[in-house]
């Protein structure tokens, strides 16, 4: 016990040393499906993050596999440049199968 605590002072209460790092959680709900982002949590390391993700995000069979990724390791595209960057390619309609007309004789393709 520090001197300050012995004296009953509250001034000795340290500011929080360090918030536990933030992790993003991805869950595969069943075999055959992709892992899907479901939220985040704080944990000291990857192993603990996996255990906590199990307790927080899969209490009712929501998942068969869990990924955790440090949030600061994710690089994301800029939402402000969404329109320019993720171009819908509306001018390239030939990329879609409906662009091509088939003779009636071809029933399925």
């Amino acid at each position: 016990m520090s001197e300050d605590e012995k004296q009953g002072g509250t001034g000795g209460r340290r500011p929080l040393v360090q918030e536990w790092p933030l992790w993003e959680v991805f869950i595969r709900s069943k075999q055959g499906l992709d892992h899907k982002h479901c939220g985040s949590l704080h944990a000291t390391d990857a192993k603990q993050a996996i255990q906590m993700a199990r307790d927080v995000y899969t209490r009712r069979n929501e998942g068969v596999s869990i990924w955790v990724v440090p949030s600061n390791a994710i690089t994301a595209s800029d939402p402000g440049e969404r329109e320019a960057f993720v171009d819908p390619m509306a001018d390239k309609i030939f990329r879609h199968p409906t662009f091509y007309e088939l003779p009636d004789e071809v029933k399925h393709m």
Binding site: L16, E19, L22, G39, S40, L41, H42, D55, V56, R59
Partner: peptide, 23 residues
């Protein structure tokens, strides 16, 4: 009661995306 803790955690996680830390 464990569910309630879980609900709190989902929501803190959502709130943190708005730029305030858990602490």
């Amino acid at each position: 009661v464990q569910d309630e803790a879980g609900h709190g955690l989902y929501l803190y996680s959502a709130a943190e995306t708005l730029g305030q830390s858990r602490d």
